[in-house]
Structure formats: structure tokens, C-alpha cells
């Protein structure tokens, strides 16, 4: 029992190596850096963008479904546009359309009818603009014509009679 009381008197405590103050300063900085919240502006958060896009889609869907009369009215209003205006518009913007888009806009049962239909009377597209497109060769100098043929490397013997007229 006596030995138990003296135990610590027979133990010598060694020194534990301890880093200097700079180590602890750096350690504190590391911990703070790891814990500080990075503040991201709301508009930079992807979730905000996704939420906004989703909300916009929902609104569009709801508006489209909740206002069918307006869509119908808009389509009916197209009937009031004169055919000539429509054709003029199409002629002017024909480069903006592609075949796929045009075919999607036409009901499949009508495609054959369109292909078989006669040219519309006075259709500025199907009716040749004889007056405007006809070239008056009388006013063109013969040398200019020959220069053109040479520059285009056209063999005059390849041209048929109709073209020459």
C-alpha cells in the first residue's frame, strides 16, 4: 500500500516537443479558411437559373393551356390576310424557311393536293415576270456579250437554239 502512494515519485515526466507559435497561427488560419462560407451572389447560383427556367416553362404551359381562345383567334386572324400579301411575304422570306419546317406546317393529307395543284392565277411566284425578267439584248454591246461568254468559259456550241433566242 505504501508503494502505491510513492508511484509518481518514481516517474520522471519527459518533455513533449511542441511546435512554435507560427504553427498554431497557421493551423487557426487553415481551420478558419475551411469553415468560412463562400458567399455566391444569388444570380450566380445555378439553382436560381434552373428554377427560373423551370418557372418560365411552367408559366408558358399554363398560359397556353389557359388561353386557347386567344390562340384560335390568332389563327383566324390569318384568314383575313390577302393571299397576295401572304405570297409576297413568303417570296420575300423564302430563304428563312426550310423544307422540314414547311412540311410540318402543312397537314399530311394536303401535301399531295399541293403537289398536284395548278399554279394560282396571278401568283407572283409561279407566274413568270415576263416584262421584268426579259432582257433586252438589243441594248447590250456584242463585245460585252462575247466577254461574258469568255469569262464564264461557255462553249457557244453547247448552247441550244432556244437559249440563243
Amino acid at each position: 500500500m505504501e508503494e502505491q502512494k510513492d508511484l509518481f515519485d518514481h516517474l520522471k515526466l519527459g518533455k513533449i516537443d511542441t511546435p512554435d507559435a507560427t504553427y498554431f497561427d497557421q493551423l487557426a488560419k487553415n481551420v478558419i479558411a475551411s469553415q468560412e462560407v463562400k458567399v455566391i451572389p444569388l444570380y450566380k447560383k445555378p439553382i436560381v437559373w434552373l428554377s427560373s427556367a423551370a418557372a418560365a416553362i411552367v408559366i408558358l404551359v399554363v398560359v397556353n393551356y389557359s388561353a386557347p381562345e386567344e390562340s384560335t383567334d390568332a389563327l383566324l386572324a390569318l384568314n383575313d390576310i390577302p393571299t397576295e400579301d401572304v405570297l409576297a411575304y413568303v417570296d420575300k422570306h423564302i430563304e428563312d424557311f426550310d423544307v422540314e419546317m414547311l412540311s410540318e406546317m402543312v397537314p399530311s393529307e394536303n401535301i399531295e393536293a399541293i403537289q398536284l395543284s395548278e399554279p394560282i392565277e396571278n401568283n407572283p411566284i409561279t407566274t413568270p415576270k415576263t416584262e421584268e425578267t426579259k432582257i433586252n439584248f438589243d441594248n447590250i454591246d456584242t463585245e460585252d456579250i462575247l466577254d461574258y461568254i469568255n469569262s464564264e468559259e461557255i462553249d457557244i456550241y453547247d448552247l441550244d437554239e432556244f437559249e440563243l433566242l
Binding site: E3, D6, L7, H10, L11, K12, L13, G14, I16
Partner: peptide, 27 residues
């Protein structure tokens, strides 16, 4: 591994057969 934190002094019969590592672990 660090050196043991305790060093055994002579004179305690129970500690005679102990190593510093062992007594440090026990502490």
C-alpha cells in the same frame, strides 16, 4: 514514434521490470 513521456526512476519494486513505453501507455 516519440520517446516515452515517462522515465522510470529506480527504487520502486513494481516498476523494476517495466519499460518507459509500457508505463507511459499505462498512464
Amino acid at each position: 514514434i516519440d520517446e516515452p513521456i515517462l522515465e522510470i526512476m529506480l527504487g520502486h519494486s513494481s516498476l523494476d521490470s517495466m519499460t518507459s513505453e509500457k508505463i507511459s501507455d499505462l498512464l
